[in-house]
């Protein structure tokens, strides 16, 4: 079961990386969104999969009556989802502002920090 889901996680990663490598801002953004899902699913799967039984103790009991899904990766992933969302939002706004200021959505044309023809550094003291 984990084997098949591992392959699915691989597919998520592959899609995300393929998108991030393209030069268009929007595709990169979507790549980031998928990357978040890929990583979350990776953590979730590595904690082993178990069908349908949530880690909740029934009312009046002190321990779960049967083996439940692993609660630890769930706790990790829960916060990771929210954080990857806020990261995505930040990245989105960054890209949006960059597009507004630079007038392009092509990664290769965003050359403010590292201009195309950089001058030689000054020699001497």
């Amino acid at each position: 079961m984990e084997t098949i889901f591992s392959l699915l996680v691989g597919a998520f990663f592959a899609a995300s990386i393929y998108l991030m490598l393209s030069r268009k801002l929007v595709r990169v953004l979507m790549g980031v969104a998928i990357l978040g899902n890929a990583v979350n699913l990776l953590i979730f799967t590595s904690g082993r999969l178990l069908r349908e039984i949530p880690p909740i103790i029934p009312l009046g009991e002190y321990l779960p009556l049967e083996t439940t899904a692993n609660p630890l990766p769930q706790a990790l992933v829960l916060t990771a989802i929210v954080i990857s969302f806020s990261f995505f939002a930040f990245f989105l706004v960054l890209g949006y502002r960059a597009y507004q200021e630079l007038g392009t959505d092509d990664m290769l044309e965003m050359r403010v920090a590292e201009p195309e023809n950089e001058v030689e550094p000054p020699l001497g003291y």
């Binding site: 591992s6 996680v9 899609a15 890929a38 799967t45 590595s46």
Partner: peptide, 18 residues
């Protein structure tokens, strides 16, 4: 590149879960 990386993650995850 993307396929290789994705497959890498998949294989690593399989190894881990096994």
């Amino acid at each position: 590149l993307a396929t290789l990386t994705g497959l890498g993650f998949a294989l690593t995850l399989m190894s881990v879960t096994q």
